[in-house]
């Protein structure tokens, strides 16, 4: 039997950093030596390929596989830099019904045989793409910005995770992790932004990481590299790498990495790579 873990990266709201986070987490997991596959569920508006720098090598996609027009192995795009990191791209079709429940189930089941970690990048919204991205997940990473509309939408998504997933239908609880992104420590300190504790308190989901707002994220996506690949020492990369440590079960206190390296940062610099 396979020991694969399927993780959905979801948020409800768009633009909070799902794709950035899915790419960064998948890369960080691959760097730990695991066989990792990232799946883009955003049919019609695929972007994970672009963030991962694989856009020119996409031939077949998830919809082709679901429809039986291509095998999974044909559709998987291997990362050029990490040979244990793969992407299953979304299709650019405008057909909203292109994905079927059964088709997605078959794809995930087959991927479970080849990979240790399967990261499902959910589209925004609560329609078919989003519900299918979460349907077969074993765990969920909920991405929220410290902002009212994002937090509210995450609450909706939590409701769906507890109702519309196979795990929930089996009567089990979907393990959930909260990833706060685009966090600005200074603004939170001034009371202009919801604090980490506020968001955790409202959503009641254990925190897996806090990714600071950073110019490094845009720089990385500009050049088609997940931020954890582009510069593994920058604050968002450290946040994602720490989140992965926690996903792997390590009991690590959550920190908010910043530009300035403190004493401990210097001390552990050598170990991070």
């Amino acid at each position: 039997m396979s020991n694969a873990t399927v993780v959905v990266v979801t948020s409800g709201k768009g633009g909070v950093g799902k794709t950035t986070s899915a790419a960064a987490l998948a890369t960080a997991l691959a760097k730990q030596g695991y066989q990792v596959c990232a799946i883009d569920f955003d049919v019609g508006l695929r972007n994970l390929d672009l963030i991962m720098g694989a856009e020119r090598r996409v031939v077949f996609d998830l919809v082709n596989v679901v429809r039986g027009e291509a095998s999974i192995k044909q559709a998987l795009v291997r990362d050029k830099r990490l040979d244990n990191l793969y992407l299953l791209p979304a299709s650019q079709t405008r057909d909203k019904d292109a994905l079927t429940d059964e088709g997605v189930a078959n794809v995930i089941n087959e991927l479970r045989m080849y990979f240790d970690w399967i990261i499902c990048d959910s589209p925004a919204g609560i329609e078919r793409g989003a519900t299918l991205a979460m349907r077969y997940a074993d765990e969920a990473i909920i991405v929220s910005n410290p902002e009212v509309s994002s937090v509210r939408d995450c609450d909706r998504i939590i409701g769906l995770l507890d109702a519309k997933t196979v795990v929930a239908e089996r009567g089990e609880r979907m393990p959930k992790h909260l990833l706060i992104t685009r966090f600005d420590t200074d603004r939170a300190r001034l009371g202009d932004m919801l604090s980490v504790d506020d968001v955790v308190d409202i959503l009641s989901v254990p925190l897996i990481g806090v990714v600071p707002e950073s110019k490094d994220v845009l720089k990385a996506s500009n050049v088609g590299m997940p931020v954890t690949m582009a510069d593994e020492d920058c604050p968002p990369s450290r946040a994602y790498s720490e989140a992965v440590q926690r996903l792997l079960g390590e009991d690590l206190p959550v920190t908010i990495p910043s530009e300035k390296r403190g004493f401990f940062g210097k001390l552990f610099k050598g170990r991070a790579a």
């Binding site: 902002e147 009371g191 919801l194």
Partner: peptide, 15 residues
């Protein structure tokens, strides 16, 4: 009152 606390209480009531 900092806007963040307003945000928090609005969210708590809404949710």
């Amino acid at each position: 009152e900092p806007s963040a606390s307003v945000a928090k209480s609005r969210l708590k009531i809404l949710l």
